[in-house]
């Protein structure tokens, strides 16, 4: 209803739509940046892009899915514009114990920070595929739909990305990888 009203020219309807979905989109964009100011900018960018292309929303899939695709595109674009960080992996305390044990001895935000800084050392394409498959916990089909890539491309990209990540970890002395 808010979508139809927005397309009919009701600006406040779109504001209500943003209020409804902004925190969910913030969760998506939190994968792309850990900086609060950048997070808000990215969330805003998503909704600006969505507004500009609202006429293309057919209504065949949930609005949230459509919005998530835009969010992925905005985040990917953000990474491509930024220079890749290198050698800035955040130290993970009790790394060996974490790897060896199943108990959650690592705080969720600490694990997220570490994973974020680790993935930041990959090229945007590799980073995106691993973010979608592991952080977003999407299937290959879902990751393909979210990114606009084919399923075979997702699989190939994921394989390459894991190989690169393994090399990065071994170079930084994290020798828990035995593959």
């Amino acid at each position: 209803m808010e979508i139809q009203a927005t397309l009919a020219g009701d600006a406040t309807a779109y504001k209500r739509l943003v209020e409804q979905y902004q925190q969910e989109i913030a969760r998506r964009m939190w994968r792309f940046t850990r900086d609060r100011r950048q997070l808000e900018e990215l969330v805003q960018d998503v909704f600006v892009d969505a507004y500009m292309s609202l006429k293309s929303y057919r209504g065949t899939a949930p609005f949230a899915n459509w919005l998530n695709r835009i969010a992925t595109r905005v985040g990917y674009r953000f990474w491509k514009r930024r220079r890749r960080t290198t050698n800035q992996a955040v130290a993970l305390q009790d790394w060996d114990a974490f790897v060896a044990r199943d108990e959650g001895i690592v705080e969720s935000h600490e694990a997220a920070e570490f994973l974020h800084s680790l993935l930041a050392q990959l090229p945007p394409r590799d980073r995106l595929v691993l973010t979608l498959l592991y952080l977003e916990e999407l299937s290959v089909a879902e990751a393909a739909e979210r990114s606009g890539w084919s399923q075979s491309m997702v699989k190939v990209q994921a394989h390459r990305a894991r190989k690169k990540l393994k090399a990065i970890l071994e170079k930084s002395g994290k020798t828990a990888i035995v593959e």
Binding site: A11, Y14, K15, R16, V18, E19, Q22, Q23, A26, R27, M29, W30, R36, L39, E40, V43, Q44, F47, V48, Y51, F98, V99, G104, V106, S108, H109, A111, A112, F114, L115, L118, L130, Y134, L135, E137, R162, K163, L165, K166, L169, A176, I177, V178, E179
Partner: peptide, 29 residues
């Protein structure tokens, strides 16, 4: 542990991580 298992484990540990509250609705127009 291989890379896939490691990523899965890290991602599971990071599951509870949530972003700060944002409010962009006010300035969206």
């Amino acid at each position: 542990m291989n890379t896939d298992e490691l990523l899965t484990k890290l991602a599971q540990a990071a599951r509870g991580d949530a972003p700060p509250l944002v409010d962009v609705a006010g300035g969206i127009l």
